[in-house]
Design a protein around this nucleic acid. Structure first.
Length: 210
DNA sequence: AATATAATCAACCGCTCAGTG
DNA sequence: TCACTGAGCGGTTGATTATAT
């Protein structure tokens, strides 16, 4: 494994690899005394043999107070999907709208839950191709859905909407609140949910697109 | 029960950008 | 204006855990 990519091996004197409870304690104490920031001086002042980068990451993603641990809720998932459709891989921006969640967490969630679609979709698409042959009307239905979507939300690009639909459709764990079988009815759901979401989000102080 | 594969998570790396002298 | 530095971000990797065969 190419020498573990140097993981766990001190390079330039910095310790790498998983954090120990002792290190966590030192970092927490340092931040509680000195506040966030000044990461480059953490190692000097706290006794930690970690780079500032590493300290910051550990604090932001793991030690920071108020972090939620555990499963992403369906509501959070919906927000992630919709914000990603709008902004793409702007994980830190998306994370601002999910209190207690980190950009890393959201990024990981997206990768594991939705990027896998790329693989599974190949199988799925084969299956769907068969179904399409059997159901010649399916395409008409899809197009009807597309038209509805385009007319209703011009914020979300069509292909993104189709991707979102595919993702919902491919999710087999039934965690999605709505499992519509066609794009048209799904579009109805998203339109409702979309405005519901933004009605709330626009009230936040930190407007995303300034 | 053993092995292979997939999923998840924590952490690192390289890059960019803003602040400062 | 330019160079330097620190902080933050997104992409990626590798270890661990869960699930399937």
């Amino acid at each position: 494994m190419v020498a573990m990519m140097g993981r766990g091996i001190a390079e330039q004197g910095w310790r790498k690899g998983p954090w120990t409870p002792e290190e966590d304690k030192l970092l927490s104490e340092y931040v509680s005394l000195n506040g966030e920031g000044r990461w480059s001086s953490v190692s000097r002042c706290s006794g930690l043999n970690r780079s500032g980068k590493s300290c910051r990451l550990r604090w932001v993603n793991y030690l920071r107070p108020g972090l939620k641990r555990g499963q992403i809720t369906p509501q959070e998932e919906g927000i992630i999907i919709e914000l990603h459709a709008l902004w793409g891989n702007k994980w830190s921006t998306i994370a601002r709208y999910l209190p207690g969640r980190t950009d890393n967490e959201i990024k990981n969630y997206w990768r594991t839950h939705f990027k896998k679609k790329d693989k599974s979709s190949q199988k799925q698409e084969k299956r769907e191709a068969l179904i399409l042959k059997q159901e010649g009307q399916h395409q008409q239905q899809l197009e009807a859905g597309e038209m509805k979507m385009v007319n209703t939300i011009d914020h979300v690009k069509m292909h993104e909407a189709q991707e979102m639909f595919s993702m919902y459709h491919n999710m087999e764990d039934q965690c999605s609140p709505v499992m519509t079988q066609d794009f048209a009815s799904w579009a109805d759901y998203v339109v409702e949910d979309y405005y519901g979401l933004w009605g709330g989000l626009w009230n936040l102080d930190d407007h995303p697109q300034g």
